[in-house]
Nucleic acid binder design. Structure first.
Lengths: 245, 245
DNA sequence: CGACGTGTTGATCTCTCTCAATTAGAGTGG
DNA sequence: CCACTCTAATTGAGAGAGATCAACACGTCG
């Protein structure tokens, strides 16, 4: 009943999103099939699924993941409102990763050839999509750096900061009063390549040290300076890496 | 002197690549600025560089990487002939990762707005680019799964198989007599989030067990079955992961 | 010939994993 | 209202995969 036209999409309000022309919005609208509501913990796309459609996450959180046959799971990235779901899969081919919701979520469902139609009928939108896809990859790059080269403490600090920033950008108050944090410690562990137990102990240690607080599903950063230092992220005065010689 | 027109690009011969119309080739040609030759070990794009152009790798190998300020390095992906270089960077923004050659290499250099022009003037090519970008991401996804959840042995087995496949696809003989393998053990270590020493010991163990051989810069897979089992990759009879319940 | 890059190997050390148990809260059914 | 069940968070103890430290071998090169 309450399906909204794309031109009334609540996401458009946010400063994060690029303004589009009426024609572009009509185009997107014409490719949109329906909206779906999912509960927390539901699997949207199964690993190896072949006929997965294209989605856009309207509200809620989700994550992409892969598993090994003995059950070991790696979360590849977290998805927030406005993110695409399912572009990564080689079209027509089996999806290489699963997608599951972290919270109740609503999504726009697009027809399978939406990606192509978008390119064909609006190069601008097409260009934006490759930009978004490239951006998605850069998030995975960041995680790979963490998992490959950062210690447990550093990984967690990095995750908290980056997720906080993304979530804060979706809020009117910019995260002044914390942001939603629907991950269980198991999700954090699977996203950072750590065991559940060690994740718990590390999280606890940082919290005791006063760097952050997670309470009742919300995340508060209490010492951004210290977290940033731990994460070795660039910002403030910190310059990006330069060749040493 | 020896600059070739895109229509004569040697890569087009390979079954791996999609045929394009003459118009499309002319378009690409018109956006191409020049070719460059680089020696092994040269840095193409520095981390944090802001004005990096767009490249296409014509011959040779390269890799994308990120480093932490104390020098720890993570290789994000390896680049082979035909791969794009530099799409991932947020256009206009600083490049989030560096790119360095592993071998002598030749590249096509495109003007900065080539990506946009390609989209604008050929939706087909534009679509292919988002496809390629998405594919690139799936490679990183695979690595993230390895680094996050596989043991050292498993990681190395996975890397050897995947690199072998990619390199073999570029050879007429399909890898029947091995494929070039220009990585040092340090590269393997940095690509898999392992230490150099442990990488050496693990590599040695697998080689002694008869799973592979690396000799004089070439890689030979001697027991693909065993490697595949170690890597827990799908293929042959192995089904993709399914929910256990 | 010495310097350097790459590969090898042995000996510790330690960060993180696995195993085990306990606590707390939410939901269900009687 | 209370047992019963489940999930998520915690904490302690011991084990281990992989890191770090140290040497050494070998080939290339100026």
């Amino acid at each position: 009943m309450s399906e909204t036209h794309c031109s009334a999409c609540p996401l458009r309000q946010l400063p994060l999103f690029i303004p589009h022309s009426g024609d572009e919005l009509d185009l997107v609208q014409s490719l949109k099939r329906r909206e779906v509501q999912l509960a927390a913990g539901e699997t949207l796309i199964h690993e190896g699924q072949t006929d997965a459609p294209l989605y856009t996450l309207l509200t809620g959180w989700a994550f992409r993941f892969k598993t090994l046959s003995d059950g070991r799971r790696q979360i590849l990235s977290f998805l927030l409102a406005g993110d695409f779901v399912g572009v990564q899969q080689k079209m027509g081919d089996a999806s290489a990763h699963g997608v599951q919701t972290l919270t109740d979520a609503s999504l726009c469902v697009f027809q399978r050839d939406a990606l192509w139609e978008l390119h064909r009928r609006s190069p601008t939108m097409g260009f934006n999509i490759t930009w978004l896809t490239a951006h998605e990859e850069s998030l995975v790059d960041d995680t790979l750096l963490s998992v490959g080269r950062r210690s447990a403490e550093e990984r967690i600090a990095t995750l908290l900061i980056l997720l906080f920033k993304r979530a804060a950008a979706l809020q009117p108050d910019g995260g002044a009063h914390g942001v939603p944090f629907p991950l269980t410690q198991q999700h954090v562990a699977d996203g950072l390549g750590l065991s559940l137990v060690h994740t718990n102990k590390t999280l606890r240690k940082l919290e005791k040290r006063g760097l952050h607080r997670i309470d009742n599903g919300r995340l508060y950063l209490r010492d951004v300076k210290a977290l940033t230092r731990l994460a070795d992220l660039y910002g403030d005065g910190k310059p990006p890496p330069r060749p040493l010689v």
